[in-house]
Amino acid sequence: MTTATGASGGAPVGGWDVGSVAAELLRCEDERIERPPFTDEWPGLDLDTGYEIQDLNLRKRLERGERLVGVKLGLTSRAKQQRMGVHFPFVAWLTDAMILPVGDPVPQARLIHPRAEPELVFVMGDRLEGPGISCAQAMSAVESMWGGVEIIDSRYRDFRFTAGDVAADNASSAAFVTGPVGLPPTELDLALEAVLVEVDGVVVDSATGAAVQGHPGEALALAANDLARRGHAIEPGWIVLTGGMTDAVFAPPGASIAMHFTHLGSVFLNGGEAPTPCP
């Protein structure tokens, strides 16, 4: 084990440090391995350290040829925060390797325990650089709004983690698909844009954009302001996933999942085929 970089997180415990946790998380992702949270062994893995690990893994992803296409927010709804016991949102990176084309099944072969959640999605027109960004300023930088589904997949067993663990794990990102309708931000009150979640033809949940920080534009402003703290801006052309509107539903092999939006169309997702068992 290498020694800690020591910038944050306190003294490494159990042999873990920023570099080794980052490498282990990428290995878990590539090899479909689930594991206990690192904070079980390294309680000092706090939020800032988690983001340090996340940024290191972004650099590794770019080095291996992935392209940065945007950001996602995690845990922006009260339902999700309560379920996970973490009471603030996260920002994480999206690369082109996470894009799922419309009509493709859930890529079970590279996922551990995928869940799906409906999201309101922005494509950015202008650069957005915090701090101090408000909801109205953030929405003014949006080029178009879309419905979408994010497939999340924690590298932690049973989705058990602390804030530091989940920040390090790129906020459980795995894949995302966007819907068929894009509208300019002046067209809709996103707080009232609803989604109906159906699994195997049965409605299991519903929500509106107001479930996401009161308005998805607030989530976008939060992302811009949070990224500024880490030295980044949101760039033109980027995709922003604003966070699950409802609690995530399991997306097992064979499932038929549909997310119907009021004005932004429907996204259908097939659970795909069972992969070989996890090692």
Partner: peptide, 19 residues
Amino acid sequence: LAGAVMTRNGTVVGTGAGG
């Protein structure tokens, strides 16, 4: 697909759709 947002004293306390 009609959405609803319920606020209590100005705070969002529930959202959903007709379905």
